[in-house]
Design a protein around this nucleic acid. Structure first.
Lengths: 257, 257
DNA sequence: ATATTGGCTTGATCTAGATCAATGACTAAT
DNA sequence: ATTAGTCATTGATCTAGATCAAGCCAATAT
């Protein structure tokens, strides 16, 4: 088991006010004048290398995290050792909020790339909510978006065939990257940086790496996508969307009004 | 398509203060002295008969609902007409909160039994949150519990076999009923009122009614459960829990502290 | 430059669960 | 009581995707 150690940066902390992912994150509704206060809750930032476990199922994490850069996979294992990926975290996403009545988290999180995160002590979350009420609303909205995406994956795993499930997943990730501000999205060639292995894809949609390969090969052969060296390029989005029954509105957060 | 009409009660509204499901619902943290105010937001209560559609995927519902009594199924259909049940709503649960950026809801909700609900106008939700900040936090917690359950179903559909998936679902519903206050749970015989058809079970875990039947038959033959006339009785919870890898903590809400 | 490793690719075979087809059992309506 | 509709049950057959097995390719380590 490759379990790398974290590196915790104690210096050169980024400033929330100039944070590029802020507008996609929990703090998006917090007025700029209050950001310094939010920032005071932040305990540290950390840098992780690929294949590092941020937290494990069953643990009671002491922090919640905002992902600043990189990709993580959230997953669970069966007792028989099979892995189900429950979702992917991209910059701006919140990690380790969900916990059960005992404070334990039910899934594990591991990095797929280099990643940096901001950590906030769980013990102060309630206080943060009280001082900045918009945070609670924002978490409700973010969790509800997560839920919608998870429901679509459930749909995939339960009732769609391999082609449909994979098409949906590729489009979900493609469009979530496209929404990023930084960005690894290349508009000219309609491509994104795409660090998943075919096994990761299989674990996300409930297939084997072997079968994922056959489907991807077919997509490439049919001129729907290109896929080399951690780059995914969508050539025929029309066809892929139809196949995956993908609706771009799934990706965007809900509104209350 | 059996699409019954709602009946909207205009009289004999129940009082929040004496509501039996309040302690499981959104309002659980609202101080009793503020309940009258919450109640003033409630637009009406409604009674539905079985197989009534409360709202459909793609619609933009004008209300959020708290379920007062009965069961609903939340589901989505593929373009090929297959149905995936995304979850079940039991008394105290919140309905129709989730919506995408366009205000549209991505799933449908239908009653499995007679049901009564309280309706709150969506347009006033933001105002409610501002006046009663604990509501936002509570929604975040409730959505995050929903998410955890959905993730377990994803696990079932993606990586578990038929026995394991069905075992998990039966235990989830059994224990959620057990938590109810009213209750349809019968402690003496370890049984609950269970209105699902075998087809519903299949649509929830991603199997056909035929295969669900074979598994259930086997469970009964092995003395693990009994199942007649909308009553489910758990005879060997030990074995069922092990088979479904069921952890009771999944069912209970998270805590912040 | 060579060896090792992790991921990709492809073929051959197997199987859990789907599909198809009937028959039974219970419930509600006439 | 009779009919019609919904749901449960069981057998026979089929298939999407799993499993098993090998070879390939590119990137890193020696």
């Amino acid at each position: 088991m490759t379990s790398n150690r974290f590196r915790i940066k104690t210096q050169a902390l980024t400033q929330c006010i100039s944070c590029p992912v802020r507008k996609r994150a929990l703090y998006q509704k917090v007025p700029e004048c209050e950001l310094k206060h939010i920032q005071s809750y932040r305990q540290h930032q950390m840098s992780l290398t690929p294949k590092t476990t941020l937290y494990s199922a069953g643990s009671t994490p002491s922090y919640i995290y905002t992902l600043y850069s990189g990709w993580l996979a959230l997953y669970q294992n069966t007792h028989t050792g099979k892995r189900q990926i429950l979702g992917f975290a991209l910059p701006g996403d919140l990690l380790a909020f969900q916990a059960n009545a005992k404070g334990a988290i039910m899934h594990s999180a591991t990095t797929l790339t280099d990643a940096t995160l901001c950590a906030f002590p769980r013990s102060k979350v309630e206080d943060m909510f009280n001082k900045h009420p918009s945070l609670a609303t924002q978490i409700a909205i973010m969790e509800s978006r997560e839920l919608a995406i998870c429901q679509h994956h459930l749909m995939s795993a339960g009732r769609k065939d391999a082609q449909e499930s994979i098409a949906f997943l590729l489009l979900e990730l493609f469009h979530r990257c496209r929404q990023q501000i930084d960005t690894s999205f290349n508009k000219d060639e309609n491509s994104i940086y795409f660090p998943l292995t075919q096994e990761d894809i299989g674990d996300a949609v409930g297939l084997t790496n072997v079968h994922v390969n056959r489907v991807i090969r077919q997509f490439i052969h049919d001129g729907i996508i290109e896929c080399h060296h951690k780059k995914l390029r969508i050539l025929d989005e029309e066809r892929l969307s139809k196949m995956g029954e993908f609706d771009i509105n799934i990706i965007s957060s809900n509104l209350l009004s």
